[in-house]
Design a protein around this nucleic acid. Structure first.
Lengths: 262, 262
DNA sequence: CGACGTGTTGATCTCTCTCAATTAGAGTGG
DNA sequence: CCACTCTAATTGAGAGAGATCAACACGTCG
């Protein structure tokens, strides 16, 4: 640990520091959820890395409409991507957990960009703007990984769109709980017995599923009373996965293939 | 034109042929919507190309759940990606127009795959399964393009998710019309005066927006009566873009950056 | 000519939204 | 330790956008 050294850069009002582990020591690499990169690949990533940003809960990493944001990887904590309409209606597009890549869409898109806010204390790795291109140019493998991550991210949005478009409130919530539980559980060594961290408020759930806050609350309550799950103290406990899965009508239980960590 | 020669391969019951133009002569290249590729890049793509598939309207290119599909580029016609629930509820994830790339998500995703059906007569270029990897390995530029296309595709889904999650039926339809009109207009030389091709049935619109068929019909009717648009004989005419845009609450008019054609 | 797919329209019905209050907890200052 | 404040969670009541059900019109096609 190098001690916190500021780089002079700034992201959403927070200084970008060079503290934090080198890519080689990235805590995420310990999880066998992620594929192993070669020393050369790690060095490449390291060379594109500009530092870290730490944010508290409910802070904005990227503002909607901002098109010049750098690239990030979420290293610790939770965040989410969202879009809003002018009158304030908000739709959360996806939830971001450790290992997720942020900002590829921003640079590529003709459409207005999305915002990114944190849910918890969070640490991001910051990469220079054209890191995506450099990665492709200097390492086909890493370039391929970026494509993989982007495609994977899209498939998450596809799933949400199916929910929001065609599932009832109960079904949407069951689906969300299962999917988030899986993602969160995959990130912790001691899988699932004592539940997983769950930092969303009911407002976030509502905005992620296209529901109103009130109806979200009532539906959540109903499922909890039926003994399907339990949320307390920022943790989610699955009580009856079978019943939830039946509601959600999910295919397979899709153990994810090993995914690249950038 | 080489005359139709079958390759012995088959996709959704249709033979894969080597007819059709070489990449060098791809009609899409004529549109300045797409960036210009070098001869080397074209040759690379050509070497990965396995042939063409032609399908009529309402045919299935990729079935839901199919995970071993090759990669495609849509060259002519319209198609769409979708997912369904077991009881038949269907959500269309995105509409595909000439130039769209199909199948990157399939290989990358842990989630169940989506299906792809045609709306019109359509021609697809077929690429071998690991073309994505070869593209990355042999040309960083083309690899980058694949990432670009994937990210761009995701941003379309993001927009739809915002609609389905947070817009009213009227607003959703206005948004869809504007967005599809733009995409279709960009593909035809004689821009927009006489409308653009519009091969969707109301059922497709409904499934793309998370609405029922009946309500879609009534809303469409209402907008048409107010003089905002007109659909007839498979063509869409914009009558009052301002009013539609006001309903849709769209940001900017986002002329897309030149996009790669694979 | 009957069958079928697509588009229309009217009449209910209901899921979900909106409005309004109340409760529970965490944090703050005195 | 208590009053005060703020945010998140709850709950009830009434309203409404959109779903479902049922017919019917129209054009195409074998």
């Amino acid at each position: 640990m190098t001690g916190t050294v500021e780089t002079g850069r700034t992201v959403s009002g927070r200084p970008v520091t060079v503290s934090g582990p080198a890519c080689r020591d990235c805590p995420l690499r310990a999880l066998d959820l992620f594929i192993n990169h070669t020393p050369e690949e790690l060095e490449l990533v390291q060379s594109l890395k500009r530092g870290n940003v730490r944010l508290g809960p409910d802070q904005s990493l990227i503002r909607e409409g901002q098109t010049d944001a750098p690239l990030f990887t979420l290293t610790e904590g939770w965040a989410f991507r969202y879009k809003t309409l002018r009158d304030g209606r908000r739709q959360i597009l996806s939830f971001l957990l450790a290992g997720d890549f942020i900002g590829v869409q921003q640079k590529m898109s003709d459409a207005a960009a999305h915002g990114v806010d944190t849910l918890t204390d969070a640490v991001f790795c910051v990469f220079q703007r054209d890191a995506v291109w450099d990665l492709h140019r200097r390492s086909p493998t890493m370039g391929f990984n970026v494509t993989w991550l982007t495609a994977h991210e899209e498939s998450l949005v596809d799933d949400t769109l199916l929910s929001v478009g065609r599932r009832s409130a109960e079904e949407r919530i069951a689906t969300l709980l299962i999917l988030l539980f899986k993602r969160a559980a995959a990130l912790q060594a001691d899988a699932g017995a004592g539940g997983v961290p769950f930092p969303l408020t009911q407002q976030h759930i509502a905005d992620g599923l296209g529901l109103s806050l009130v109806h979200t609350n009532k539906t959540l309550r109903k499922l909890e009373k039926r003994g399907l799950h339990r949320i307390s103290n920022g943790r989610l406990y699955m009580r009856d996965v079978r019943a939830l899965a039946r509601l959600a009508d999910l295919y397979g239980d899709g153990r994810p293939a090993q995914r690249p960590l950038v």
